[in-house]
Computed example of a mutant assay.
Amino acid sequence: MRVEVDRDRCIGAGQCALTAPTLFTQDDDGLSEPLPRASHPPRHPLLHEAARACPVTAITVHEP
C-alpha cells in the first residue's frame, strides 16, 4: 500500500493529521505529508478516513 499527497493541491487544512496523527503530519510549510511508516502500513482503519477528510482530495491511497 502506498500513500501519496499531492502537494500542489494540498492547502494545509490538517484534517488528515487530525484524523490519523500516527499516519500524517504537516511539514514546516503546513502541508500534509505521510509519516515514513505510513508508506506501507498494514490496513490501518483510519487511513482511508483521513484521505476522505481532506477537503481538496489531495491524498491518494494506492492499494496493491
Rank of each mutant, 00 (worst) to 15 (best):
M1S: 13
R2S: 06
R2D: 07
R2A: 08
R2L: 08
V3A: 05
V3D: 01
E4T: 12
E4A: 14
V5M: 07
D6N: 15
D6V: 05
D8A: 14
R9M: 11
I11N: 08
G12T: 06
G12Y: 02
A13E: 12
A13F: 10
A13T: 08
G14I: 04
G14E: 01
G14D: 03
G14Q: 03
Q15D: 11
Q15I: 00
C16P: 00
A17D: 06
A17P: 00
A17S: 14
A17M: 12
T19M: 12
T19V: 04
T19R: 09
P21Q: 03
P21F: 02
P21W: 05
T22K: 08
T22W: 10
T22F: 00
L23Q: 01
F24T: 02
F24I: 05
T25H: 13
T25C: 12
T25E: 15
Q26T: 12
D29R: 11
D29A: 15
L31G: 04
L31T: 04
S32G: 15
S32L: 10
S32W: 00
E33V: 08
E33F: 14
E33G: 10
P34E: 00
L35K: 14
R37P: 09
R37I: 05
R37T: 09
A38W: 00
A38H: 01
A38V: 02
S39A: 15
H40G: 10
H40M: 09
P41W: 05
P41S: 10
P41D: 09
P42H: 13
P42I: 12
R43V: 12
H44F: 03
H44A: 07
H44P: 01
P45S: 07
P45D: 10
P45V: 08
L46Q: 10
L46K: 08
L46T: 02
H48Q: 13
E49M: 09
E49W: 07
E49A: 15
A50I: 04
A50M: 04
A50G: 08
A51H: 01
A51G: 06
R52M: 12
R52A: 14
R52Y: 09
A53V: 07
A53L: 05
A53R: 03
A53Q: 02
A53P: 06
P55I: 09
V56N: 09
V56A: 07
T57G: 10
T57L: 13
T57K: 13
A58F: 06
I59K: 05
I59A: 08
I59E: 06
T60K: 14
T60N: 09
V61A: 06
H62D: 11
H62W: 13
E63Q: 12
E63L: 12
P64E: 15
P64N: 08
P64C: 02
